[in-house]
Amino acid sequence: MIQEPALPPGWEMKYTSEGVRYFVDHNTRTTTFKDPRPGFESGTKQGSPGAYDR
């Protein structure tokens, strides 16, 4: 089984109701579709995929 590298501290991976993966940075309280791990580009969309909830 291939294991992906861990997200940076304070980051979480979530999915929209449509199943699109996005990332929550709890450090800055922002969201992005761009994977924060080096070498992982998950898309070019920018903006908030939804309300920030902790």
Results as ranks from 00 to 15, higher is better:
Ser42His: 06
Gly47Met: 13
Pro8Asp: 04
Gln46Tyr: 08
Lys45Ser: 13
Phe33Glu: 03
Thr28Arg: 03
Lys34Ile: 14
Pro8His: 03
Arg29Pro: 02
Tyr15Glu: 11
Thr16His: 02
Pro49Ile: 07
Pro8Lys: 06
Asp53Val: 07
Lys34Met: 15
Arg21Val: 08
Thr31Leu: 02
Gly50Pro: 11
Pro9Leu: 12
Thr44Val: 12
Gly47Arg: 12
Gly47Lys: 14
Pro36Ser: 00
Pro49Cys: 11
Arg29Tyr: 05
Gly19Lys: 11
Ser42Trp: 09
Pro5Asp: 15
Ala6His: 15
Phe33Val: 03
Glu18Gln: 12
Arg37Ala: 04
Lys34Glu: 10
Ser48Pro: 12
Thr32Glu: 00
Ile2Gly: 07
Phe23Pro: 01
Lys45Trp: 09
Glu4Gln: 06
Thr32Asp: 01
Asp53His: 15
Gln46Arg: 12
Glu41Ile: 11
Thr44Pro: 10
Asn27Val: 05
Leu7Met: 10
Trp11Leu: 03
Ser42Val: 07
Met13Ala: 13
Gly43Lys: 11
Phe33Trp: 08
Glu18Phe: 05
Pro49Phe: 08
Val20Cys: 08
Leu7Asn: 03
Asp35Pro: 04
Val24Asn: 03
Ser48Ile: 11
Pro9Tyr: 07
Val20His: 09
Gly10Met: 08
Arg29Thr: 04
Val20Pro: 00
Gly50Leu: 11
Glu41Cys: 01
Pro5Gly: 15
Ser48Arg: 13
Lys14Trp: 12
Gly50Lys: 13
His26Arg: 04
Tyr22Ser: 01
Arg37Gln: 03
Gly10Phe: 07
Val24His: 03
Pro8Thr: 02
Arg29Asn: 05
Pro49Val: 11
Phe23Arg: 00
Thr16Lys: 01
Gly39Ile: 15
Pro5Arg: 15
Gly50Trp: 07
Ala51Leu: 11
Lys14Gly: 04
Glu18Ile: 04
Val20Gln: 12
Met1Gly: 04
Val24Ala: 08
Val24Gln: 08
Met1Lys: 15
Asp35His: 09
Gln3Arg: 10
Arg37Ile: 06
Ser17Trp: 06
Gly19Thr: 02
Gly39Leu: 13
Trp11Val: 06
Asp53Phe: 05
Asp53Gly: 07
Ser17Val: 05
Tyr52Trp: 08
Lys34Arg: 09
Gly19Glu: 03
Thr16Ala: 01
Ser17Gln: 08
Gly10Glu: 07
Pro49Arg: 09
Thr44Ser: 13
Glu18His: 09
Ser48Trp: 07
Thr32His: 05
Lys34Gly: 07
Lys45Thr: 12
Ser48Tyr: 08
Thr16Glu: 01
Tyr15Arg: 12
Ser42Gln: 12
Met13Leu: 08
Pro36Cys: 00
Gly47Phe: 06
Asp25Pro: 00
Pro5Asn: 15
Tyr22Asp: 00
Pro36Leu: 00
His26Gln: 04
Arg29Ser: 05
Ser17Asn: 14
Pro9Gly: 11
Gln46Ser: 10
Thr44Gly: 13
Tyr15Trp: 10
Thr30Ala: 06
Glu41Trp: 08
Ala6Phe: 13
Thr31His: 01
Glu4Val: 09
Glu41Ser: 07
Pro5Ala: 09
Glu12Lys: 02
Thr30Asp: 05
Gly10Arg: 07
Gly50Cys: 10
Pro5Tyr: 14
Thr32Ile: 01
Phe23Asp: 01
Lys34Ala: 08
Asp25Ile: 00
Lys34Asn: 03
Phe23His: 00
Trp11Pro: 01
Ser48Asp: 14
Val20Asp: 15
Thr44Trp: 07
Met13Gly: 06
Val24Asp: 01
Gly10Ser: 06
Phe33Ser: 03
Glu41Met: 10
Tyr15Phe: 09
Gln46Val: 09
Gly43Asn: 13
His26Cys: 03
Tyr52Phe: 14
Arg54Thr: 13
Pro9Met: 15
Tyr15Gln: 13
Asp25Val: 00
Lys14His: 08
Thr31Val: 04
Tyr52Gln: 13
Gly47Glu: 14
Glu12Ile: 02
Glu41His: 14
Ala51Lys: 13
Gly43Tyr: 09
Thr31Gln: 03
Phe40Gly: 14
Arg37Glu: 05
Pro9Ile: 08
Arg29Glu: 07
Pro36Asn: 00
Tyr22Thr: 02
Gly39Ser: 14
Leu7Gly: 02
Val20Asn: 12
Tyr22Pro: 00
Pro49Asn: 14
Asp53Leu: 07
Glu4Ile: 09
Thr31Tyr: 01
Ala6Gln: 14
Gly19Trp: 02
Arg37His: 03
Phe33Cys: 02
Lys45Arg: 10
Gln3Gly: 10
Glu18Val: 06
Gly47Pro: 13
Pro38Asp: 13
His26Met: 03
Gly19Ile: 00
Pro8Ile: 02
Pro8Met: 06
Glu41Val: 10
Arg54Gln: 15
Tyr22Lys: 01
Trp11Asp: 02
Ser42Arg: 11
Glu18Lys: 08
Gly50Ile: 11
Thr31Phe: 00
Pro36Asp: 00
Gln46Leu: 10
Gly47Trp: 06
Met1Trp: 00
Pro8Ala: 05
Glu4Ser: 09
Val20Trp: 06
Glu12Gln: 15
Pro8Cys: 02
Ala6Tyr: 13
Glu4Phe: 04
Gly50Phe: 12
Glu4Ala: 10
Gly50Asn: 13
Ala6Asp: 15
Glu18Gly: 08
Phe40Met: 13
His26Phe: 04
Ser48Val: 11
Tyr15Gly: 02
Gly10Thr: 02
Ser48His: 15
Pro5Lys: 15
Ile2Val: 07
Lys34Phe: 15
Thr30Cys: 09
Ala51Cys: 13
Phe40Asp: 14
Lys45Gln: 12
Pro36Ile: 02
Gln3Leu: 10
Ala51Trp: 06
Pro8Tyr: 02
Lys34Leu: 07
Tyr15Asp: 02
Gly10Val: 01
Phe33Asp: 04
Thr31Asn: 03
Val24Thr: 05
Thr16Val: 01
Asp25Tyr: 01
